[in-house]
C-alpha cells in the first residue's frame, strides 16, 4: 500500500520544480546589488572638475566635519533629471552636496546643470567609473550619505523621492 504512494514522489518533485520555475518567471529576482562598502571610509580618490566653474572632488574634501551627500549622476541619465528638484530642496535646507559625474563630457555636464540647476559644491569627473566601482555602486543615480569624518553611512540606489527628503535630513542631522 505504501509503495503505491512512493510512485507519486517523482511527480510531486516535478510539480514543485515546475511551480518554482513558474514563480521565478513571473516574479523576477531582485536584481539590485547593494554596496557592501557601508560604514567604511570613502575610498581615496582625486577627481578633476567635471566641468568649468565647479571644483573637482577629492576624498579629503569629504571629511570636513559636516555630514553630506555624495550624489553619483550623469548628464545622460534621465532619472537624474527627476531627482534634481529633491537635491535642490536638500541644498536649500543647508545640506552640503557633492557630485560625481560618471562617464561624462564637460559640455554635457554644463548643459545638465543649466537645465536642472546646480545643487553641487563640487563635481568630480569619474571618466572610467573607477570611483564608482571603488564605492560598490552599480548605476546612476545613487547617493551616499557620508558623515563628518568621511565614513559612508548609507547608500541610496535610484532616484531620491520627495518622501525621502525629510528622512535624509533627519539622518544627516543625527550624524552631527
Amino acid at each position: 500500500m505504501r509503495s503505491r504512494w512512493v510512485l507519486f514522489v517523482p511527480l510531486a518533485i516535478m510539480a514543485l520544480l515546475f511551480g518554482a520555475f513558474v514563480y521565478r518567471l513571473t516574479v523576477p529576482a531582485e536584481t539590485l546589488i547593494e554596496s557592501q562598502w557601508i560604514d567604511k571610509p570613502m575610498p581615496l580618490f582625486d577627481l578633476p572638475p567635471a566641468t568649468g566653474g565647479v571644483a573637482g572632488l577629492k576624498s579629503s574634501d569629504l571629511a570636513d566635519g559636516r555630514p553630506r551627500l555624495v550624489n553619483i549622476f550623469a548628464s545622460w541619465c534621465i532619472p537624474c533629471r527627476a531627482e534634481a528638484p529633491q537635491l535642490e530642496a536638500l541644498k536649500a535646507a543647508g545640506v552640503p552636496i557633492d557630485g560625481i559625474a560618471i562617464r561624462d563630457r564637460p559640455e554635457d555636464v554644463a548643459a545638465f546643470l543649466r537645465e536642472n540647476g546646480n545643487p553641487f559644491d563640487r563635481i568630480g569627473a569619474d571618466v572610467q567609473s573607477s570611483v564608482q566601482i571603488a564605492l560598490g555602486s552599480s548605476g546612476v543615480p545613487e547617493t551616499f550619505l557620508v558623515d563628518g569624518k568621511g565614513i559612508i553611512r548609507e547608500q541610496i540606489q535610484g532616484v531620491i523621492l520627495q518622501d525621502d527628503v525629510p528622512r535624509i535630513m533627519a539622518k544627516l542631522e543625527a550624524m552631527k
Binding site: T31, L32, A74, W76, C77, I78, P79, C80, R81, A82, S138, G139, V140, P141, E142, Q157, G158, V159
Partner: peptide
C-alpha cells in the same frame, strides 16, 4: 528600481 529592463519612459526606472 527595475534594473536591467529599460523602462518605457526613462523616468520610471530609478536606475539607468
Amino acid at each position: 528600481f527595475n534594473w536591467c529592463i529599460p523602462a518605457k519612459a526613462g523616468i520610471q526606472s530609478g536606475h539607468e
